[in-house]
Write a protein that binds this DNA or RNA. Structure first.
Lengths: 247, 247
DNA sequence: CTTGGCTCATTTGTATACAATGGCGCGATT
DNA sequence: AATCGCGCCATTGTATACAAATGAGCCAAG
């Protein structure tokens, strides 16, 4: 792994974990000292982080950390839902290739197996996230629209695996979420196969928006008022005590 | 202007103008020789270009130029239309702030003035593009969703000002496009003010997709078959002889 | 003749020295 | 006392030397 990759990954997780106060200035040199590398890879990493909007860079005056609020994550997920919905619509319109269909059906099968035995073990959560990701990725890439694919990938810097948090906070909610998730996946595929683009888009958008409902559910568990949207995301996550949940 | 900015801008326009064959390898050193700067700014510029998908970079093996096809531009505009539609829907749902409303109405007025006296002069095309951009930008930023704003901005590296080409190729089409464009802008604003999110989204998406219709119109003018989608974009543009139309 | 590995050239990855830029504080002047 | 301007300092921007990695070509062995 190159130094630049290491620096980027490390800074990213530190930023998402809230290890820097929002507004803290990050000079290139300070990052060098912190991580023990030279300025060149640090510079490249900061450029990428700025492109992902995790830090803001002003010309000649370095970078400042941009705190991630719940609202930021919410907004990113709104956009993701819109884009994934559009992907489903495109696929329904253009038809589903044999290879993509294979992948989707396999992921439906895997997801179905999971839905029959919901647990809250780490291994289950891992497999669930994987199966879910396979479905979403397959759908998006089946659209054959590279701008779409890249736009969604760019959003992925934001923590989107809300499910782990939701699951850990409420078992009943978890069971219900997995099972309705399965049903929704099936519904999207059915709409695509029948060539109903509008249904596919709406169903997929609604499904993707579940992450938002998950956030709102956590808000309920934590008994927070509407001001929770302005909270630093890492505090919000910390409230339900799920280590590593920001991945 | 910093060297990095210069290098980026220069390479970008060269890439869009098709001055490099698709697949050409771009080593850092070759770009240095070409533009007479050292590797550091070149490196940064190539990173940005890779993020924008104008070149593809494989680890340790440099970059190769990725030809921009009509399809690429088409796909980028599909995504843009989806996102702008979503923005309109969000604004309709959340309401329009006084400041944003001001900007939108001013842009409607400006656009209305233009629509009454369509010409094909450079100055007119410039003012038309500006008024149009003001409307679209104001709408997107009124959504208050920064992920959305940034996603759209990221797409903007793709040539989206198809209008200039369309206009130059067919005066009647130009007049009709400007006037229906004005009507569509009004329709979107009306839907937003009445709080009809679905109408706002559909109207705005449909409106944004006009760029696609513009591309298709040019295809007709050039009497190209369906294979035109795989054409290098700069050749396609070159066909109607509009210098500087890729901006 | 084919295939395996080894060497070497090419090219990126990293470190560091130096230049330029912009902000901030201090002092002088009104 | 307030303001304007100047100079210093912090920090990024740039150049370049050196290290590391990857792929190609060659040679030898089977």
């Amino acid at each position: 792994m190159s130094q630049e990759t290491t620096v980027h990954a490390k800074l990213r997780s530190m930023l998402l974990d809230g290890e820097f106060e929002a507004g803290t200035r990050l000079t290139e040199q300070s990052v060098c000292d912190l991580l023990g590398v030279s300025r060149t890879p640090v510079r490249a990493a900061l450029l990428r982080l700025a492109a992902q909007n995790l830090v803001t860079g002003q010309s000649n005056r370095g970078y400042t950390v941009r705190g991630i609020t719940v609202d930021d994550v919410w907004n990113a997920n709104v956009v993701r839902a819109v884009l994934e919905g559009a992907a489903a619509g495109i696929v329904a319109r253009n038809g589903l290739g044999a290879a993509a269909r294979e992948v989707l059906e396999q992921s439906l099968a895997d997801y179905g197996d999971l839905a029959r035995h919901v647990e809250l073990s780490d291994s289950f959560l891992e497999r669930h996230a994987a199966a879910n990701r396979v479905f979403h990725d397959a759908l998006v890439s089946a659209s054959g629209n590279e701008s779409l694919t890249r736009s969604i990938d760019t959003l992925a810097y934001m923590p989107v695996q809300i499910n782990r948090i939701v699951f850990a906070s409420d078992r009943d909610f978890a069971v219900q979420t997995v099972q309705s998730g399965l049903a929704e996946h099936h519904g999207v595929v059915a709409a695509i196969l029948s060539g109903d683009a509008m249904a596919a888009e709406i169903l997929m958008r609604t499904h993707s928006q579940k992450a938002l409902r998950g956030i709102d559910h956590v808000r309920g568990v934590l008994k927070l008022g509407p001001e929770f949207r302005q909270m630093p995301f890492h505090e919000f996550i910390g409230g339900v005590g799920v280590p590593g949940a920001t991945g």
